[in-house]
Amino acid sequence: MARRPVLLSGDPHAPFPDVSLALRQPDGLLAVGGDLSVPRLLAAYRSGIFPWYSEGQPILWWSPDPRTVFRTGAVHLSSRFRRELRRLRWQVRADTAFDAVVAACAAMPRPGQDGTWIVPGMRRAYAHLHRLGHAHSIEVFDEEGRLAGGIYGVAIGRMFFGESMFSARSGGSKVALAALARWLDERGWPLIDAQVGNPHLESLGAEAWPRARFMDALAALTAAPGLGGSWTGEFGTIPASGLAGPTAD
């Protein structure tokens, strides 16, 4: 008999099933149901699990194998893009436009997807996490002060779980990712969870880790002291041109 995803109880404090029970097809589907309350979401991320579903579906919870991650010191920007960066007068900030970043991510058309998984319930849930200091956005502003790109996700301990990113101008999401990775790397946060890989993420340096390796790293990082509350002051303003690095590749 084919294995089915676990049905979650109505108790948001109930533990998630072990990720070893996740299905192989579709890869990583572990559980169904429950809610998007703060206790449930934080417990999910600590357990290597995230929600991902479409409008009209129940809440679906996933833990794929392999897991896609960025090492914060190894995000790759091509030499051509870094040459372009040196000419840009863009600036990067944190937690100054969270709702706008999430809305832009939801509105971005994505190959192979009909509609968005960032449904209204998800947007409300992550806005609540943001107000409590658990979810953060990195925003890239162009020379006219308009959003050129961004990324948002959840931070627990010294682990950042990337949820989605967007570009309103070419390269906007790359700048957001590179700025976030550098900032985290400087503070001893070694990983960004990218969940599921694709060629674009791989071109930026994403790696596919066996789920067991990811879970081992996750346990230590989520238990480490983190940085709660707003990141705006600590992050400051980073010139995008400063992410270009030395002239030679």
Rank of each mutant, 00 (worst) to 15 (best):
P5C: 06
D11A: 05
H13V: 09
A14K: 11
S20R: 15
L21C: 08
A22F: 00
A22P: 00
L23A: 02
R24L: 08
D27I: 00
D27W: 09
L29A: 04
V32T: 11
S37G: 12
P39V: 08
R40P: 03
A43Q: 15
I49G: 00
Y53H: 15
S54C: 13
E55L: 15
I59P: 06
W61L: 01
W62Q: 05
W62R: 03
D65L: 08
R67Y: 03
R71H: 14
R71G: 02
A74E: 14
H76V: 10
R82T: 01
R86T: 03
R87G: 14
L88E: 11
R89L: 10
V92F: 05
V92T: 05
A94H: 04
D95A: 11
F98A: 05
F98T: 02
D99Q: 13
A103C: 03
A106M: 05
A107K: 08
R110P: 04
R110T: 02
P111L: 14
G112F: 00
Q113V: 14
Q113D: 06
Q113M: 15
Q113E: 12
D114E: 14
W117G: 02
W117K: 09
I118A: 07
V119L: 13
G121C: 12
G121N: 13
R124F: 15
A125N: 12
A125T: 06
L129Q: 07
L129Y: 08
R131P: 05
G133F: 06
G133R: 13
A135S: 13
A135C: 09
S137P: 00
F141E: 00
D142T: 02
E143Q: 12
E143W: 12
L147N: 01
A148V: 06
G149P: 05
G150E: 02
I151Q: 10
I151C: 09
Y152K: 02
G153I: 02
G153H: 10
V154E: 00
I156T: 05
M159H: 07
M159W: 02
M165K: 11
R169A: 14
G171W: 04
G172K: 13
G172W: 06
V175G: 01
L180K: 08
A181E: 00
L184N: 04
D185R: 13
R187Y: 03
G188K: 09
W189N: 03
L191I: 08
L191H: 05
A194I: 08
N198Q: 12
H200Q: 13
H200T: 13
L201R: 10
L201V: 09
S203L: 11
S203F: 10
A208Q: 14
P210S: 13
R213D: 07
F214D: 01
M215S: 07
A217R: 15
L218P: 06
L218Q: 11
L218E: 07
A219K: 14
T222P: 04
A223H: 06
A224R: 12
G226V: 07
G229P: 11
S230F: 09
W231G: 03
W231C: 00
F235K: 05
T237G: 04
I238H: 11
S241W: 07
G242A: 15
L243Y: 05
A244R: 12
G245C: 09
P246L: 11
T247C: 14
